[in-house]
Each structure stands twice: as C-alpha cells, then as structure tokens.
Design a protein around this nucleic acid. Structure first.
Lengths: 339, 339
DNA sequence: CCTGGCACTCGACTACTGCGAGTGCCAAGT
DNA sequence: ACTTGGCACTCGCAGTAGTCGAGTGCCAGG
C-alpha cells in the first residue's frame, strides 16, 4: 500500500517531467494526479524515493527529477507498451512499401523512425552471415586491380577491390569468375571457409596466387563483422533536447559517428527478441551518459537480420518510443524476410 | 593605391575575424597588420567598405565583420590557395590507401575530409552514368520477388527489388539472367535504352511481361539520378561553430539530411574542374544562409566521377580549406580512376 | 588625403534585490 | 503508524542600476 503509492508517485514524476521538462514539485503533483493525499505526504514519499536513489533534485528547493535508476524502474515496472493507433500503423506501412531495393528499405526505415520518434534513428544493414552465396562477379578495373562483388540470397551485396601482384587480362578474369562460382555458389556462408580452402588446388598453377588472394578476400568480406554498415537519420532532433544533455551535443554527435559504438548499442539488442532499453550509463558509452537507447532486432526468428533503434534524451516517452520502434522493426522484418 | 589599401584592409578584416571570431576594430587592425596608416585612416576605409557592402557592424560601436559579399571578394581576389605541407599530403595518402572497396574509399574519404578541415564533409558516390554495364545478376528472393544487381566497370553496384506479377522459379531466373546479360553486357549506359527497348522481342512470349518489367527497372536504376548516394561525416564539427550560425544548428542539420539539397550543392561543383566556393545565400538554401560550401569534383578529366566538399561556417579559412578539399579529391580521383 | 583629438554609443559585465516555488521538519489529528 | 497543515528556510531566477571600455563618426589641422 505504502510501497504502491510511492511507485505511483515515481510514475507521476516521470510522466510529468517527460512532458514538461521541469522539476516537479509536491504540490503540483498531488493536485494534478489525483493521488488523494496532501502535498506533505507526497513530500515524504519523495524524500524516501530520493533516499533510495530514484529521484534527485537539481538544486535545493527545486522539484525532483528522475535519475537513471528512476527511469529504469519506470520502464521495468511502471509502464506498459502503448499500442500504436491504426493511423500510425498505416503510415508506417505506406511509407515503407514503395521501397525498391535494400538500400531504399534501410534508408526509408531510418528516416521513418527518426520522423516518428522525433529522435535520432539508427538502422543496421542486414548482415551477411546466415545467408548463402548466390553469385560472385569479378570485374577488371585496371590490369592490376580487380573488383569482386558477392551476392547473397538475402539480397545483400558485398564488394571488394583486390590488388593483383601480376597483371591479369579479361580472359583470366573470366576463368577466375568461373572457378569461384563453381566452387562457392550455393554454399552457406558458414560453410564457405572449407570450400575456399580447397580452391587453389582446383586451379591452374599460374593462377593460384591470384585465386588465393581472392579466396582470402571472399572470406574477409563474408566474415568480417566490422564491415557491417549502418544508416542514421534525425540527428537534427538532438538539438530539440539540448537542455537535457549534460554533455555538449558535440560529444554525443561524435559518439554517434563512431560506427563501432553504434554497432555495440544496436547490435546487442539484435539477438534479444524484445525491445531493449538502455538508460544513461547503461549504454556503457561515456558520451551517451545522458541519453537513452531504445533498440530491437528485426527479421524473423531467433536470427535477426539486423538491429534498429533510436537514441534520445533520457527524458523520453518510453512506452510510446518502444511501441514505435517495435512496430517499425516488425514491418521491416516482414518486408525483408522471404515471406 | 587607395583601392589597394582598401582591399588590404578587407583582407586583414577577414583574416583577423576568421581567427578570432570577434568583430575587428580599426585600432587593433592598424597595429597588427602593419598597414602603415593610423586607425583613423583605417576607419575611413572601413566606412567606404561598409558603404559598398563588404563589411558590416553587428551593433553600433562594435568592430566590423565581413559580409557574404566581403568573403566572396576575399575568395575571388585576395587569397591564393595555400599549398599543403608534405606531412599533410602524406597523411592523406596513407589514410586512404588501405581502402578495400568502393564503400571503404568513400567512407574513408569523407572521414578524412571531416577530420582535416574540422568541418562537415560530404562525398558523393561515383555515379553510374558514363560507365558501361558489366554484368547483371538476378536473384530469386521469393517466388514473386526478384533482386537485380547491376555491376558496372567502374565498380559501382546498383541493386533493385522487383515484384513479379507471376510466380517465377529458378529456371526462369536463369533464363532471365542469360537474356539480360546477352543483350546488355558491355553496353554503355547511355546506349542501354535502345538495347533495352528491343529486349522483349528476343524473349519467349510468356516471359515478356517479366522481362519488360526488369528492363524498365534496369533503365530506372541506371538513369535515375536520385539514386545517387552520398556519405557525410563530421556533423559534430558544426557544434564547434555554433556562434557563427544565425539559424539554429537544427535547421542546418535538417538541410544536410536532405539528400536532394546536398546533391545540388555538391553535384554542381562536380563538373567544374576547380574548387567551387558558395558563400551564404549563394548556396540557394535558406537554412544554409550562414554557412559556406567548398566543393569540387573528383575523378579524371571532364567527366568527374562524383563530387565532394565540406560545409562550414562562413567564417572559415578558405585558402586552407580549398587546398585540403582539392588535395583529397585528387587522391581519391587517382584511387578510383583506372590508373 | 592622412591624422590626432574628442564626444558619443551601446553591449557586456557586475552587484544587488525581491519574489516565489519548493523543501524539511514538527506537532497535532485520525 | 500515517497523514496533514503550518512554518521557517533556501536558493535560483529575473529585473534594475551602474560602470567600463572598445569602437565609432566627425572635425579641424597638417
């Protein structure tokens, strides 16, 4: 009972603060939320909540604002996930359905997400692993430089420039192309390493070094996880919330430009089947300590194709944001999955 | 003589202001630049310059700052292009040379440019036009959905998802692939339309609708200029110069997220053989009216592969920035050109 | 045409003050 | 054991006033 009311007070504080961005005081709170108790009582509860670290006051004699811990409790126990309105669902669908290729899908998604949530959106391109090789194309750029294009059955395309030690001509390229495709087409990416390892033996001796190089490149392209690309949109939305950030916009933008950082944030949410929220220091990125990340994986089943999410101020409408991220992820998943 | 000194005064104002970001007054100016005249004289010149619209004062009784027109004159007549130091050239080269594929080249370039100039860098991907078709690959994603991948000899890869009205199977896909490649491989993109138009006639009647769809898609992918992608980096650098922007960061970031806007800014510089500078309203983008854009094309000859450049505050070290942009473009051009 | 002198302007900075929202604590009420 | 109203206290914020100084425009003399 007592505990219950305290939680209710915390929820009220979070909700009010999210709306107003002003420290919320006992009086306004008691009035506006029909708690049925007096401000003084609320003050006591607030005192306790502060003791436990859920809220804090920016200055003596100001209202309270939630701490990381407070938001965390709110997300974990006090909020459901708001269902989206029919109109919103339809908007998502119609915005996404005109996409013509993978790039387009990803770009539209990331924009959509940014626009809907009014925050910075991040979408990871589908990863190559867990798909199989469809075709390898070799293009002669110059006598010593080859372009290799790798196509998988999920529509992902990888490309790579290879420097050859010896000059090659069109004829050799044709032979290489044939050899590579015979050996690798249809292989699952996970099985490719074996197929690659025997490749040189199938080749004319004089081509072996070249084939070996290319085989290595194939592997790298497929396995190398760093190659994973991401798209971002809505950075302008960060300025909307400047007040909320302890650090300057600067450091946040810098962090967001680091692919590695983003990959960790978004990628980690990918495997879990649900929407993940990381609040403040939970992001493990110092520059993002006054932000929150809402992310999830998209694509069917336990093997998600990739992750997507948004980065915004901790003072965020979590239920709504989580619902939106989830909805967009679902549609994108359906769109990319071989349905 | 008189004219000469006035220009000298303008140059001094621009140079001082770029360094200090503070309105520059007559006294400091006369002292620091060894003009050999008294502050009063400088004041007269300033008065004249202001009359002509090259400088302005933010408030009565403050120093002068250059106007758009002033910067323009400075760029056109008062500044050479600073040569880069040997160390800088080497840095560019070494940063770029490890690139493994097109994506990598573009990403590295844009980062490099952002880091060097400490501004927002933009690099346009090489465009498809003016190259020829190397190979078309068709991948079956699901019975009604095909992925078409188009590879050109410059290493550019285009992809596109095609919805088929009738279900297709692997056999048909093989046939399509063969037909398309026979008809189109080796064609210059500019000639492709004719080749495409006769395509359906070469096909089995029952495949014609499908082939027609794909042919259309090929054209769109090749011709469609909107498909052109760009990479951006260094948005964090905008915060460095917040003071310089009349508008909020917000609107600038928003403008920069509009592909179309960027394409116009960067793309237009592409054809001219030199480094182009657009100052303030010259950008023709309202949100960028307090910024300047320094851009150029990269890639050999009159047909540049793409454009690249930086966006920064008008208060920018133009000579240095222009030199840097030019140098990076040169290296990237060499890297991508079939040398 | 340049120069020194002079009065004037006006933004930036500092110090001070009063206001009021909000708190913590306490004694009384249920 | 909780809740409540009362009360003194704190402290950030906004508004006012005053000072300072960089910089200007103008003018008369070289």
């Amino acid at each position: 009972m007592l505990e219950d009311r305290r939680l209710e007070v915390l929820r009220a504080i979070v909700e009010d603060f999210v709306l107003s961005n002003e420290p919320v005081g006992s009086k306004a709170l008691a009035e506006r939320h029909g708690l049925g108790v007096s401000p003084a009582t609320v003050r006591n509860d607030m005192s306790a909540l502060e003791e436990e670290g859920y809220i804090t006051q920016p200055h003596t004699s100001a209202g309270r604002i939630p701490t990381d811990k407070g938001y965390r409790l709110f997300v974990d126990r006090l909020s459901g996930v708001k269902p989206l309105s029919r109109a919103e669902r339809r908007a998502i669908q119609s915005f996404l359905e005109g996409a013509v290729d993978l790039d387009d899908v990803v770009n539209r998604s990331v924009r959509l997400l940014a626009q809907l949530t009014r925050q910075v959106a991040v979408v990871q391109y589908p990863t190559m692993s867990s798909s199989s090789l469809r075709h390898i194309e070799v293009v002669l750029l110059s006598p010593r430089r080859l372009l290799m294009v790798i196509i998988t059955d999920t529509g992902r395309v990888g490309q790579r420039i290879i420097e050859s030690l010896t000059p090659v001509d069109e004829e050799i390229v044709g032979e290489l192309r044939h050899t590579l495709n015979c050996a690798l087409a249809g292989q699952r990416l996970t099985d490719a390493p074996e197929a690659v390892s025997v490749l040189p033996d199938l080749t004319r001796p004089e081509l072996r070094p070249c084939v070996a190089t290319m085989a290595g490149a194939v592997l790298e392209t497929l396995v190398e996880p760093q190659e994973e690309r991401i798209a971002m949109a809505g950075t302008a939305n960060l300025t909307r919330a400047t007040v909320d950030f302890a650090d300057s916009l600067r450091s946040i933008l810098e962090a967001l430009e680091e692919q590695v950082v983003l990959m960790k944030l978004i990628g980690s949410a990918r495997e879990t089947g649900t929407v993940t929220v990381r609040i403040g220091r939970e992001t493990d990125v110092d520059a993002l300590r006054s932000t929150a990340v809402v992310a999830t994986g998209y694509g069917r089943g336990p093997f998600a194709l990739g992750g997507m999410g948004v980065v915004g101020p901790m003072r965020m409408d979590y239920p709504w944001t989580m619902a939106t991220v989830r909805a967009v992820a679902k549609y994108v998943g359906e769109l990319l999955g071989a349905d």
